[in-house]
Write a protein that binds this DNA or RNA. Structure first.
Length: 321
DNA sequence: AAAACAGGCAACCGCGGGTTC
DNA sequence: TGAACCCGCGGTTGCCTGTTT
């Protein structure tokens, strides 16, 4: 039940920044007597503060186990992930970051992480892409066509369909990221350090895109995000070009662009953070986003084969997750 | 050099839930 | 039973500092 501050509280309490002397008094008192009742601490400790202010000062600043300094990558990942599940439950989030206070996490979210997500085209409230997904509805036919196992005579069609898909993924990724965004950032946003969550089963699409490359060339990358020589998709004003280069000679096919990819979330709300953080359900594998789900049927390796490659590098295809 | 602006963060405020009397 | 008390949470404010004009 809400309670208005008493007249005494209103008239005598000091507000504003704490002085070192006040800090010392509060620390001395708590160290000698423990926390006890915050309501009584100001009087007993000789402070002209309300109990609430003392509690806040202690829990957010003076507590001995407070961790100072910049948030680590791991902490950032965890905050984003937990926020996607819990929303603005800062105290709950703080319980999973030892030494960090809810206030600190809240401030960090509001000043850094929220803006970072927005720059990447992610709605910081819903953790969904802000891209107009209504445009992304007619890809299923594209995908199914891409998974039918085209014969050589169907190469051009398959090439068009799948490179078109690549184009659309590229567009999507560009919507999700700024030019300064790294693969890691994207993975963080999607909640998992594992690229298996958004790779195509044959290893070409998904987390392997070089997101730091804001140009419209999509390299063909292996699971270690290393570009595989000779293969790329190039997006320019004229459309999509799938290319293979061998011994200085380039084989290319110019493709039109028109379709749309699916961008699927299988998000499910977690009941509580402990379940999510349990060993049986680590935050890595409790990932709620599988944004490239549905792309798994794409078989760009066979496409590359069709372009004339006889030897796919050892790293490919990726092992199944 | 100084004013204006922007970002970061500590602290405050109002509210709601739980407990006590 | 309900008023008073206490605590904690999330949202907001305002100060401080660094940067830009």
């Amino acid at each position: 039940m809400a309670r208005s501050p008493s007249h005494e509280e209103m008239s005598s309490v000091k507000k504003g920044p704490w002085t070192p002397e006040e800090d010392r008094k509060l620390i001395d008192y708590v160290q000698k007597h423990g926390r006890g009742s915050w309501h009584r601490i100001p009087k007993l400790a000789g402070l002209s503060r309300c109990g609430k202010s003392c509690r806040l000062r202690w829990t957010n600043y003076l507590r001995p186990d407070i961790k100072r300094g910049k948030f680590t990558e791991e902490e950032e990942q965890l905050i984003v992930h937990l926020h996607s599940l819990l929303g603005n439950k800062w105290s709950s989030i703080a319980t999973k970051l030892p030494g960090r206070t809810d206030n600190e996490i809240k401030n960090y979210w509001n000043t850094h992480l929220r803006k970072k997500l927005m720059r990447m085209g992610i709605d910081p409230v819903t953790h969904r892409p802000t891209t107009d997904l209504s445009l992304l509805t007619s890809i299923s036919s594209l995908l199914s066509a891409g998974s039918l196992g085209y014969t050589t005579s169907h190469l051009e069609t398959a090439l068009k369909l799948q490179a078109e898909a690549a184009h659309l993924v590229q567009s999507l990724i560009q919507a999700l990221t700024s030019s300064s965004t790294s693969n890691t950032d994207l993975m963080n946003v999607f909640g998992s350090p594992s690229h298996t969550n958004y790779k195509a089963s044959d290893g070409c699409l998904g987390g392997s895109f070089n997101l730091q490359n804001s140009a419209s060339v999509i390299p063909y990358l292996n699971k270690d995000s290393q570009p595989v020589p000779d293969f790329s998709f190039c997006i320019d004003e004229g459309g999509v070009t799938a290319s293979r280069t061998e011994e200085g000679q380039s084989t290319s096919s110019l493709l039109p662009s028109k379709s749309t990819p699916p961008f699927v979330s299988t998000s499910s709300e977690a009941d509580n953070v402990d379940l999510l953080m349990s060993s049986e359900s680590t935050y890595a594998n409790s990932l709620s986003f599988t944004p490239f789900e549905g792309w798994e049927n794409l078989n760009l390796d066979s496409l590359i084969n069709d372009l004339g490659c006889k030897e796919i590098p050892d790293q490919m295809p990726w092992p199944n997750a």
